[in-house]
Design a protein around this nucleic acid. Structure first.
Lengths: 148, 148
DNA sequence: TTGCTCCTCACGTCACGTGAGGTGGC
DNA sequence: TTGCTCCTCACGTCACGTGAGGTGGC
């Protein structure tokens, strides 16, 4: 009875991931197709895709940035370039990375978060402008109603 | 020399409208095609489209709601149903509408603005959630950096 | 007359939706 | 064994982008 601990986690199926992230299985497969999600290395042709808890979070983040910030999938790919680089260097990290290398990677991740925060601020400004416009229009309508 | 005042306003051409609204002529023609913009009644086949200052504002509003709130053109059409109804009743209004009818129309326009404001509030909530998530992630990264 | 913008098809693209037909795990 | 979800094509759709070829106004 070997691999006792490892066998206990079968991983998430694509339908579960889609439900958790509020999207569809088609969308997840499409994101894999264009390279936004990792393809799951050793999957046999026709075999079921399996995902980790990290993958679920990744999908949720993509959906969020897409819907709330209105980013295209191409823009998201660019945003994640730094982080995917981090992903590739993860083995290096765990194995024998020096702290200078670790620092470099973490700073890249931090810069990625900063970039997202800048986009959030931009959206907040746009929303504020839109809100003011609508409020003004509403006020003018109310004026005309009271002046009847 | 008749129509002196009327002839002095040639109206805006489609390229000007597109530039003012920050979009393309193709987009404006498409919006006309699906009924989001009025088709300009008496335009001869192949003739140039002409727009009023009101039309320009309309296009800007559509672009705003599409980009900032992420609404589909179908949803925008639904949002504008009340207002387009108002547009159709404009002649009635100017001609011989009683004040009860006027009040009804203005209340509809006010409700339309309220609906948009509700969508704005929803977006603001989503943005706040997203911002908090990113900030938290950023903080965790910073922690790991200082703990190196 | 020369450019420039405009016009109408019409095909291409992005981000999926939606079956069609078949295989695999609880 | 029976359903259920999963798989891979592959065509459809929404919201335009992008020329192709031609006409119209300053």
């Amino acid at each position: 009875v070997t691999n006792l601990a490892l066998d206990s986690d079968p991983g998430f199926r694509i339908g579960t991931v889609a439900a958790e992230a509020g999207t569809t299985t088609r969308t997840i497969r499409y994101y894999e197709e264009i390279g936004l999600l990792s393809a799951g290395d050793g999957r046999p042709k026709g075999g079921h895709r399996l995902y980790t808890r990290e993958d679920v979070e990744r999908v949720r983040e993509i959906i969020r940035l897409r819907d709330v910030l209105g980013l295209s999938l191409d823009q998201l790919n660019q945003l994640f370039t730094l982080e995917s680089e981090r992903q590739q260097l993860k083995e290096e990290w765990a194995a024998a990375s020096d702290s200078a290398e670790q620092r470099r990677i973490l700073l890249a991740a931090s810069a990625c978060a900063d970039a997202q925060l800048a986009l959030v601020e931009e959206r907040k400004t746009q929303l504020a402008i839109l809100e003011r416009e609508i409020c003004d229009r509403r006020a003018r309508i109310q004026d005309r109603i009271t002046n009847l």
